[in-house]
Design a binder for these strands. Sequence first.
DNA 1: ATACAGTTCTTAATTATTAAATGCACATCG
DNA 2: CGATGTGCATTTAATAATTAAGAACTGTAT
Lengths: 300, 300
Amino acid sequence: MARSDTRFRAAYNQVLDYCEGQPAGAHIPSEAALCEIAGVSRTVIRRCLSRLQEAGIISWDGREKRILRAPAESDRIDQPEPTAGGADLEERFLDWVLRFDVPAGTTLSVAELSRTFSVPQHELKEFLAGLSRFGLVSRRPQGGWTLLGFTKEFAVELSDFRSVLELNAVAQAVEAPVDHPLWAKLAELRDRHLDLKARIDRDYHAFSKLDEGFHQAINSVVKNRFVAEFQKVISLIFHYHFMWDKTEEKIRNAAAIDEHLAIIDALEARDGPAAQEAARRHLRTSKTTLLSSLRHHDLG
Amino acid sequence: MARSDTRFRAAYNQVLDYCEGQPAGAHIPSEAALCEIAGVSRTVIRRCLSRLQEAGIISWDGREKRILRAPAESDRIDQPEPTAGGADLEERFLDWVLRFDVPAGTTLSVAELSRTFSVPQHELKEFLAGLSRFGLVSRRPQGGWTLLGFTKEFAVELSDFRSVLELNAVAQAVEAPVDHPLWAKLAELRDRHLDLKARIDRDYHAFSKLDEGFHQAINSVVKNRFVAEFQKVISLIFHYHFMWDKTEEKIRNAAAIDEHLAIIDALEARDGPAAQEAARRHLRTSKTTLLSSLRHHDLG
DNA sequence: ATACAGTTCTTAATTATTAAATGCACATCG
DNA sequence: CGATGTGCATTTAATAATTAAGAACTGTAT
């Protein structure tokens, strides 16, 4: 019932690394200096020094610290878990929701999620608290959480919001300076689109990745933390939905390629209104697709 | 080291209420029925019954439950704290940050915040996790949180994002049907603006509230959970900044009133481009004001 | 057969505990 | 004496333990 000593373990090994680089008998720098090296507090460094002394690797008396012998491989402490998949929890969570088609209104239990994702409960609680800011989940009065997302309303609102952001991005993209990386990226994307169009009959699955890249490129001109944060969620949801919804995938993707190309054409011609119109058309189809995929799920 | 029994206390008093309405000797309904009455689980009801039995208020043997005597006032359990200001934590937090002008980069300690706001630590952690989604704070590697907000970049990005949302709202407002409550609201706001304009020399402080109401009205036409969530944060930040930044407040507010009136005029004339232009102008001044208020803080 | 109570298992809020961080006072060396 | 470094004490935060509350299953009397 205490916090893990991951920090100590990592620091200890790091100090061992340092010792290995030094000859026996060498002086060891001050505690504060070691803090800098290991990136931890003095408390941890002092624990490390204690242990090094116990292990007979160093002598330590006040500021008189010397290396006694070179550390062996067996002196290292093994890190408990190099995993910590808590980083991409968001991706894994959305993947789980969409893959298993978890219906809206489902009660999410922290304990259960903690087990399925092997993430400490408190991390999950923080994560859910964050999602609630996006209206994806909400706290229940009796405790616990409810999954709100992926109703028709949610899809409509998400699509509309996406449209607002993306039309703004397009408007800014038209104004982007000629040396902006966007233009190189767009040229490359055009080639990849044309390439995929030629072999769409076989490789229509590859479009999902291309779509993500395309929208990312457009939005890259908008330097805004709020937009960026939302974009992550939006792109994940659209990405996965298109991946799992297989109805008419080939036709749909072929059409989307043309829509993308139209946007690229307009952008490269620096034709603002045309770009807006092309983007609007594409976003409209995306919205329809997202909605129809939900309808399928409702029926099936 | 256990969760609070608030639920039990409330339920117990509620069951007492029920008993008071019944004559002595009366049968008590089933446990499940009592659950309905008190809105809690059977576990809690059974605890209540146990305690009622101990207190000699009822007899309880299996499904044979009878009232022995009318409950007295002293039988009630007093609720620990009816407060729980955790609801408007967001408002209080932002108020605190802006009122004390907490600089960007400040390390926020959960323990300290927990004390100043008298909110349990874990609630604060969830709250901060939520804010981190908006890029206002971020977790430090050594533990704790850093306040990121209220740098120049933050203000610029927030203003830009606000502009995108609000211009979209204006575009939708122009298209709103004649029976939409917006129009009545706008007419009322126009009057209040004109009223305040007449006495701006004395009551220029009153503008802040009016400003909030105006932007809320405009944004009310957009039915979108994402927009709504952001709007809350945005309006809070702008609201407080204008409240604390006293430089040239009178002139600034007088100018803003005119800008608001221009937007109302254009909207009521259903003139889309004019409304966009008026809104764009107003948002530009808002951004400038927000930025200049930050500059003042930097110097002072 | 069905409505209810008895029982057991799960879940979630909260506290207790310990690792880590931080702050301050004092020591040592130039 | 001042700068640098250490010793000690306090504070903070991550995590496990603990208990209230919820939910499901089972038995039983009407």
